[in-house]
Amino acid sequence: MMRRYKKPLVLAAEFVLLTAISLFFILPILWIVASALRPSGPLYTYANPLTLQTFFPTTVTFDNFVHIFKNLHFGRALLNSLLVAVATIAISVLICSMAGFGLAKFAFRGKNLFFFIVLITFMVPFESIVIPLFVLVKRLNIDNTYFALILPAAGNGLAIFLFRQFFSEVPTEILEAARIDGASWIRIFRKIILPLSIPAIVTVIVMVFMFQWNSLFWPLIATHSSRFEVVQVAITAHRSTEDTSWANLFSSAIAGSLPPVILFFFLQKYFVRGISGTGLKG
């Protein structure tokens, strides 16, 4: 299993390159974080001209964060989004992995049509289906409930597509062998397919989480009670035509981006070679 290590020079070069790329990603965020940690004041004072203070505030205060949690109930929005995201993930991973398996390993009538359906579901913008979808949700009598936020997002074409791509990599011979041993399809799916597809499952978890976490327009339509307020609504509300509260906007944007980052940080350990797929490929 051991691989030859790269030369230190190559490693150093990679490190420098990665640092350069990461500056591109992190500098605007650092500025936002610094702005959120400063007592609220003018926006551009520390942005231009550029100084060390641009990214590292001299006086640090958590007042902006205290304000959004204490007075604007940002915690409630975080919990709502968390609940919606977790519930959607539970349904989504199950039904989408099943469908991905169906598409990857079976030939059946209507398969191409189904795959076509899967594809077009993520090729149509949400804005163009929002009205019929809302009418439907009202007719199902689930508007203004958590179900209205969870169920329409549970079937995720992108997730099915991803599972299909990954399951196709599992050699058919293994499944055939299991069939000969008398295993049922459900058992094969549970005991062979899923354990071999941890990276795919992890990816779909993050994908569905991000989708629900970042949704803004649908929650506004599907639910109207303030107890259902989700995180993006709470963040976006700080900007309007009359005024923008940069301190509130930035601090809530930072607090609101922590859950996905934490999720990714902990799940990415599954993106390590050798955990799955070892030697399966023919």
């Binding site: 009205i131 506004l220 339509i221 009670s225 976006t236």
Partner: peptide
Amino acid sequence: IDIQLVPFGQLFQTIEVRLSS
């Protein structure tokens, strides 16, 4: 009073969809 506070950027779309349905 079941009040919904809709961010300005989404306000008019939300009103349109809610009323037209």
